[in-house]
Every structure is written in C-alpha cells, then in structure tokens.
Amino acid sequence: MKRYRQHSIEFGNLSDVPFWKTAGPIDLVYISYGLLVVLLVFVSYVLGMTGFLPFDPQEINLELLMAPPNTEGHLLGTDFMGRDILARLIIGIQAYFLPGLLAIALALALGTCFGVLAGYWGGGLDTASTYVSNLLNSFPRLVLILLMVAAFKPDIYLVMTVVGITNAPTVASLIKSKIQFLKQKNFIEAATALGLKNAVIIIKHILWHNCRSVLIIQATLGMAEVILIETSLSYLGFGVQEPTPSWGNMVQSGANYFMQGKFWPSTAPAMAILLTIMGFHLLGDSLNNILERKRDQ
C-alpha cells in the first residue's frame, strides 16, 4: 500500500515552495553530510594554512612512536616517527586543495568552451571536439599522469593540470548534450529572433540559467575525483613526497605497521579519504536530484 496525502487544500505555485519541502528526505540527509564534509575540508585547510594546529606535524617525538589514539593529547595517535596524525591529516589537505581547485577550474573552463562550441555551432566543431575527447578518453589517465611525472617532475600542479585537461571532455559532452536538448525547445531561436547577441544567449540563457547546476554538480564530483587521484599518486610515491604529509603517503607509510596490529597510522587517513570522497559524491548526486528535478505537473 502506498500512501498519497493531500497536505493542503489550496496550493500555490511550485516556485513558491522551498526546495527542502519538495526534495526527498534522503537527499537532504546526503546534502547535509556533504556540506559538512565541504565545511570540514575548508576549515581544515584554513587551519593548516594559518598553522593553528594541535601539534607541529613535522615534530618528531622519539618517545612516543606509534602511540595509540588518545595518548597524551594525540587524539588519533602518532605515526612511526612519533608525529601527530591529526595534525598531519589536517595539513594533508594542503596537498590537494589548491591543486584540486585548479584541476576543477581547468576542467570546467575547457569543458564549457568546447561544449558550447560543439553544441551551439555544431557541424565541424562538433566532430572535431568529439574526436579530441575520444582521443583523451582512449588513453588510460593514470598512465598518462605517470608518463608526465616521469618525463618532467613529480609536481602536483603538473599532475592536476593533466587531470583537469583529461576531465574536460566529460564536462564538454554534458554541456553539449544539454545545449542540444535546449535547442530542440526553440527558446534559443526565440532569443535570437528577439535580437540578442550570441554571447548573451550563451552566457545568460544557456550557461547561467540552464547549465549552472550541471557545472556545480560536476565541480563537486570533480573534487572527489581529484582527491582520489592525488592520494593514489602519493600512495604510489609519485605525488607529494615525504616528509610533506598527504593522505596518500600517510596510508602508504602506515600500511607497513598494519599487520603488527597497529592499525591507526593507516586507518585514520584511509577513513579520511573514504569519508571525504563519499561526502563529495553524495553531495553531487543529491544536488543532481534536487536541482535537476523533473517538476511533475
């Protein structure tokens, strides 16, 4: 039995109803969790930048090697050199935060440009951009990054530039298909007939009014992907190098002690990775459900 209940006799317009009333409850939970993660990451980044930390992440304490959580003020314990894990987790965010934003910005900017070119003008541009995106997609991304790292230097900004460029085709194809969908409804044609310039139509009508939610969602999902790539590379030793902490190299260095029953040095960063990525993914998905909801009429 499914219940349908009329909540009020008189109903106004849908635009007057705030989104949290029409969204599914599970989406709201996900969004709250995702926003919490975003907030934590941001606050931690600021804390790490200002150096407002419980301990110095680089301070070696030979008396407290591999201390379990909650000893002498070390909330998450210490690692094999006696460094505070919590402080290193917080400072680890520095490793991906700015480079990640760079990658996202690059992906969105490039993707939007190509998407608009392909979707709005189409024809040869469409064919060309499809060709480029196929080319980029057909090359394993991790291999490409490793190749770049091997050829130049293990610099995280270089890696993130590559990530940004390789992510652009996904954004481009989304924008392209959105524009092609919008073109079927002919308000774009109507805007042209009104006398609006192409630039106004693209920026105002297409990107701002109809694509911004797509871009926000892509940014959120992009952040999750960036974290994953940064941590994988650092884990493999191609990303951030010791002694600078990154969640990836923390997991790597802690993993050696996992079998000895000392789980915390690797588990703490691993959980951080899991929970953060999950947060960004859930946020992206729920935003997708809410912003792109089909208004049932």
Binding site: Q184, K185, N186, F187, E189, A190, A191, H205, H209, N210
Partner: peptide, 10 residues
C-alpha cells in the same frame, strides 16, 4: 510551440 519559446528557468 508554447513551452519551447520561453526559457524554462527564467
């Protein structure tokens, strides 16, 4: 087309 000529998000 009634619906199509107006930007749905404006």
């Amino acid at each position: 087309d009634l619906d199509a000529a107006l930007n749905p998000k404006m």
